[in-house]
Design a protein around this nucleic acid. Sequence first.
DNA 1: AGCTTTACTGACCAAAAGGTCAATTACTAA
DNA 2: TTAGTAATTGACCTTTTGGTCAGTAAAGCT
Lengths: 217, 217
Amino acid sequence: MTTQIKPNKKEVTREKNQKLILDAAEQLFSQLGYDGASMSMVAKEAQVPKANILYYFKSKDGLYESVIDRIIANWNLGLDNVTINDDPATVLYNYIKSKVILAVEQPMQSRLFASEILRGAPYLQNYFRTNTRPWVKQKVDVLQAWMDADKMDKVDPYHLLFTIWSTTQYYADFQAEVLLVMNKLEYDETDVAQITQSITHIILKGIGLKIPEQSEN
Amino acid sequence: MTTQIKPNKKEVTREKNQKLILDAAEQLFSQLGYDGASMSMVAKEAQVPKANILYYFKSKDGLYESVIDRIIANWNLGLDNVTINDDPATVLYNYIKSKVILAVEQPMQSRLFASEILRGAPYLQNYFRTNTRPWVKQKVDVLQAWMDADKMDKVDPYHLLFTIWSTTQYYADFQAEVLLVMNKLEYDETDVAQITQSITHIILKGIGLKIPEQSEN
DNA sequence: AGCTTTACTGACCAAAAGGTCAATTACTAA
DNA sequence: TTAGTAATTGACCTTTTGGTCAGTAAAGCT
């Protein structure tokens, strides 16, 4: 498919090892934070000599940045291609639902971002400025257009987005608290539906929309 | 007032120093997390010899626990003495408003808790089990009673509480993100009102309540 | 096969971490 | 006063940290 003619054994093993390392690092950083996770822990977890990690990633900072970069590369902010002509209820319902599923099924990435932002987002500043901010601006415009067309209540679109983000991510970032309060050991199959149901009820109704009919999927 | 007859110079200076240390520790832990803040940083910030901190608090863990304990001691979960006879709209409106004010005006404590929960709440487990969980149980009962009496929509009361917590705390814990996205340097005077307005509109209307008339205060 | 170059890593290092302790300095009570 | 006790802390210790580097192994190329 690509121009790659010879698989090049060197590159193959390097990429395999780098993936091993990045996986281990992602897990440890999200579990223990930047300072809590050490290079030797990552090395042990990835079953790779510590010097090898430094060889690939130059420094702990470099490794951390690579972990974040990889997450961002696969990051989908959702709400792609929304336009004024779309139905706000359907769009927002699906957005919330997908964020809840993400929060429950892969909380690690959300937590890594959370601990990064808690520290003042030293490595994400640039990302927020160049990616998130324009993305938000665009969605805000669509939301505003919907409001102007009286398709939904007039609320500050920024705070509406923050409300959606906070309510959904909460189940990933604060999982420990949620489970302790609800006296559960882990989320079960019914929780995703229950959470989605509650959040969408409150938010959609809260901005004057009706929960759309469930489509099959 | 108290039985304290002689002020006892020793105790006085000890408490003064401990306060100095706890203040510094609270700031540093909330800024850098448990692993990110070191004993020598705390010592420098509190302008006290490091050995003195160890003398008072036995270990870094001990200091951290004391910081958390002090916060908890002054912690007010709010919603005290709510009963079924209260007006849900007024109660919830005031609760949300007070949480927003707290988030904007003193985000440090919220962030300390957040980073603690992110790590799986090693030091808060007990607190959640013995304090938060019963507190929640009680509020959940009141909410349920309101729902049963058709005073508000029937939604899962646990998730309603999580929604309130998440939306309000977001402005403390993720301040860096909020400010970056909104392209601000810091919250200004109008933000508290704006945030409260947006959140209460969405949540109260979302559970079938009307925003109560503003009382003077 | 042999030569070059890149990939790798064990051994090592300085700095910083949390923590101990013996010596010194306050206080207190008689 | 002064003896006794508790408070304080400078010096020191061990472990771990992120990071370097010289030497070895492994491809790649002709």
